[in-house]
Design a protein around this nucleic acid. Structure first.
Length: 683
DNA sequence: CTTTCAGACCTTTTT
DNA sequence: GGTCTGAAAG
């Protein structure tokens, strides 16, 4: 099928043709001319030479719904890049293209590569995550939904704080029976929202132990929603919910947005949830120029409400969909590909794909059993050093694991061996208490009504507890304390030295003409003594604060800084972030989730031990086991040339109280001719 | 009211 | 090994 000849439905769907719709003249002629003349020899890029047949089909199908099933390593990024380039060459204004990706980095990378093909115009394509797109859009249209445009965004920790506060207020402490902890409550609510399923059903299906508490949980959830709305706060889910609301309840806005984003591309579609699907569906409107790419076999975010039904059902949601499958793998050698296919062989439901590669030859994957945890780490260290000797750069090797803490022991051994590494995923810099404290100060400057942040920064003060904080917050909300001169006087009148100093500091910073870096410096000066009093590892944390100031220094506006910190925080974990730039060559340690979309020459997968991977708590249900299997697939498909999977035996697991010694069920049955088995024992 | 302290609890994955 | 909660001391 070929967009140049006769795009399907172009005759009956007139709304797509700009000529029918009065517009600014310049824009109109621009688009019209190109659409009728697509195959004219104005393309400077010779797409057919650069892409294989399936990839070319993706690039040439610009109009109408397109579903691309892209197996691992099949050149998805390349294809998307060329598609963007092609659209721009066709004369589609870059601003009309919306590229939704899983991380902002992925979008930036694609646009950077596209701009190398067709020039800097490509950078004007609107790209980013669903959340960041929703954020930008909602800042423009907040009033329509009754929000202040300077709403602040709550991360998960903030949400938990709110729930905690409201729970106390409603008198729902874990007094009598067992009431779920705040974390659990937040994830219940989030599940309910992202799956568009009533809370009651979520609790009954997934948290049956709290069945008797449903009434209370529901009322807490309601209080939570009201609270956020009353104070111009949105959590991650609200960004999506409100985006859907905006599109649903305000047709004029929907029209305008659909007009602005005529061509929509969504990457990693297998990891979108129902809300995100709604956004795509409504935004594409009658034009239906939607292309989604994904691999159902790599769907690994169901805990976040992602539903791979989205990708399975796409052709039904968008009748007339062109389905294109990318099957040539350019990444891995045949032995690795054979191995990954074997991992996937018994998956329950999937689009059939037959990945093949021309990279014949290469080592068989290794499955390595070690006596204990330390030997596993030492095995990795030794192999890394050997490969390094053979000329493989550290950058081109990665160690992957199911859960963040699985790398702890390895990190010790890496330090001993002086191997520099960077760790992705797990606990983040931005989530450390002292960094959150600083951010909270900036957030109240951005939005005085951010009571969550007020609460946080007031509780830092000596002599202020929950009660005192609430008194001050009440005064802020009713307007008797402000950051103006007499507002500060009033704060001083409260009789607490520390509170007075807080307001003096903030009062001096509220001036919008002060550049952000300067604000942060002043704030750090204010915060340092507080930190010294509160944390005994003060000097270690001080380093983070310096890094924080440095990051803030790159931003001009408080708004964009806060949005980025909430939506796209640095993914490196705490220890690494300060060292960036000190050494270029580093071994990558990463959770499998954070390794999505990446590739390395050599990949180690550690802790492939039943109970760790699959995780013990996933063993219960069929669906979660299937997801773990896909996770194994994602992990193993990251490898280009070498793959080693290891597991220690005889590990005592506190959770189950058992000694675990079985290799992961996903690799246990792999035949001898597909993977070599090794044992590492003490000499 | 706030702070401190001791015991209970449980740990995926991320926007 | 860390966070979270509740009770007692300041």
């Amino acid at each position: 099928m070929n967009a140049e000849q006769d795009p399907p439905q172009s005759s009956d769907d007139t709304s797509r043709l700009p000529a029918e719709r009065p517009q600014s003249p310049a824009r109109k002629t621009f688009v019209l001319k190109r659409q009728k003349d697509v195959s004219a020899p104005t393309f400077r890029i010779r797409y057919a030479d650069e892409l294989n047949a399936a990839q070319l089909a993706v690039v040439e199908n610009i109009e109408g719904p397109v579903l691309v099933i892209a197996g691992a390593g099949t050149g998805k990024t390349r294809t998307l890049t060329y598609r963007v380039a092609r659209m721009i060459e066709m004369g589609i204004p870059p601003g009309h293209i919306l590229l939704l990706t899983f991380t902002r980095k992925a979008a930036q990378e694609m646009l950077r590569r596209a701009s190398m093909l067709v020039g800097p115009r490509a950078e004007q394509v609107e790209g980013g995550t669903f959340h960041s797109f929703a954020n930008r859009t909602l800042r423009h249209h907040a009033q329509r939904l009754g929000y202040n445009p300077s709403f602040n965004i709550l991360d998960q920790g903030d949400c938990e704080d709110v729930v905690n506060l409201l729970r106390t207020r409603l008198g729902l402490e874990a007094k009598k029976r067992r009431f779920p902890r705040k974390q659990t409550i937040v994830s219940m609510i989030s599940s309910s929202i992202n799956r568009m399923t009533p809370l009651r059903e979520i609790v009954e299906a997934e948290y049956p132990q709290y069945r008797n508490e449903i009434e209370e949980i529901e009322s807490l959830a309601r209080a939570y929603q009201d609270y956020k709305r009353a104070h111009d706060l949105m959590d991650y889910d609200d960004l999506l919910v409100n985006m859907v609301m905006l599109l649903e309840k305000h047709p004029d806005v929907r029209e305008r947005l659909a007009d602005m984003h005529r061509f929509i591309m969504v990457d990693e579609y297998q990891d979108t949830n129902k809300l995100q699907h709604e956004i795509v569906h409504r935004l594409s409107g009658t034009r239906r120029n939607v292309m989604v790419v994904g691999d159902d076999s790599q769907s690994i975010y169901s805990f976040r409400g992602a539903n791979f039904r989205n990708i399975m059902d796409f052709p039904e949601d968008f009748p007339g969909t062109t389905v294109i499958t990318l099957e040539e793998n350019y990444r891995s050698t045949q032995p690795i590909l054979t191995f990954t296919n074997e991992v996937l062989r018994s998956a329950a439901e999937k689009y059939e794909k037959h990945l093949f590669t021309r990279r014949v030859g290469g080592d068989l994957p290794m499955i390595v059993s070690t006596m204990n945890e330390t030997l596993q780490s030492q095995f990795v260290v030794q192999r890394v050093l050997e490969l390094r000797e053979e000329g493989v750069e550290l950058n081109d090797m990665a160690v992957l694991f199911r859960s963040s803490f699985h790398s702890f022991d390895l990190e010790i051994e890496l330090n001993k061996a002086n191997i520099p590494y960077i760790k992705m995923g797990g606990f983040k810099f931005i989530e450390t208490a002292h960094v959150k404290d600083l951010v909270a100060h900036l957030r109240v400057l951005h939005n005085m009504r951010d009571v969550v942040s007020w609460n946080r920064i007031l509780l830092l003060l000596e002599g202020v507890g929950p009660r005192g904080a609430q008194r001050v917050i009440d005064a802020i909300i009713d307007g008797s304390i402000t950051l103006s001169h007499d507002g500060i006087e009033r704060a001083r009148g409260l009789g607490n030295q520390a509170v007075a100093r807080l307001f003096e500091t903030l009062g001096a910073l509220v001036d919008e003409h002060i550049p952000l870096p300067e604000k942060v410096d002043l704030l750090v000066g204010y915060y340092r003594p507080i930190m010294k009093r509160k944390y005994d590892d003060y000097t270690k944390r001080l380093k983070d604060i310096e890094v924080f100031a440095e990051i803030a220094g790159r931003y001009r506006s408080l708004n964009s800084f806060l949005s980025d910190m909430a939506l796209e925080p640095p993914n490196e974990s705490v220890t690494d972030i300060g060292e960036s730039g000190s050494e270029d060559e580093k071994l990558v340690l990463s959770t499998i989730h954070s390794a999505k979309g990446l590739e390395w020459s050599s990949v180690f997968l550690i802790w492939a031990l039943d109970g760790f991977f699959p995780a013990a708590r996933s063993v219960g249900s069929h669906e979660s086991i299937e997801e773990e299997r896909r996770l194994m697939y994602v992990a193993t498909t990251r490898a280009k040339d070498r793959l080693a999977i290891s597991y220690p035996v005889n590990i005592y697991d506190r959770d189950s109280g058992m000694v675990l010694s079985k290799p992961s069920r996903f690799i246990e049955t792999i035949p001898e001719e597909i993977a070599e088995r090794w044992v590492v024992a003490e000499e």
